[in-house]
């Protein structure tokens, strides 16, 4: 019974990892052909979120709870990076407009 439970978790981990890979591929398509810079920022944001989810899945798969600490760091860096990107896009637009 215990063995069966471990198997169930391993099957779930495999399925969810496949879902994460499929989602990352779809998001990468949007990242590569997104019409504007905000679309690419959104796609990068979502890919970083997938990485955080993959860390969670990997922590369960390897039974190592220490992997949550990189996820915390990633969430922090993700927020700062996204905000910096958004401010850069806005500011670049403003400067380009002032030159006209």
């Amino acid at each position: 019974m215990n063995n069966e439970g471990v198997d169930m978790i391993m099957v779930g981990v495999a399925v969810v990892a496949t879902m994460l890979v499929a989602g990352s591929l779809l998001t990468f398509v949007r990242l590569s052909r997104g019409p504007g810079l905000p679309d690419r920022v959104v796609a990068l944001d979502l890919i970083a979120m997938y990485v955080a989810g993959a860390i969670a899945v990997y922590a369960i798969a390897t039974d190592q709870p220490i992997f949550i600490l990189p996820a915390i760091t990633l969430a922090l860096v993700l927020f700062v990076g996204t905000v910096a990107f958004a401010m850069y896009v806005e500011k670049r637009n403003r400067e380009g407009r002032d030159e006209q």
């Binding site: 969810v16 879902m19 591929l25 779809l26 989810g53």
Partner: peptide
């Protein structure tokens, strides 16, 4: 655990389909 993991994967997939 498996239920929450699976629903998380499902929502992530929905997000990818939405952004696509």
């Amino acid at each position: 655990t498996v239920l929450l993991l699976f629903s998380g994967g499902l929502f992530s997939l929905v997000a990818a389909i939405g952004i696509f």
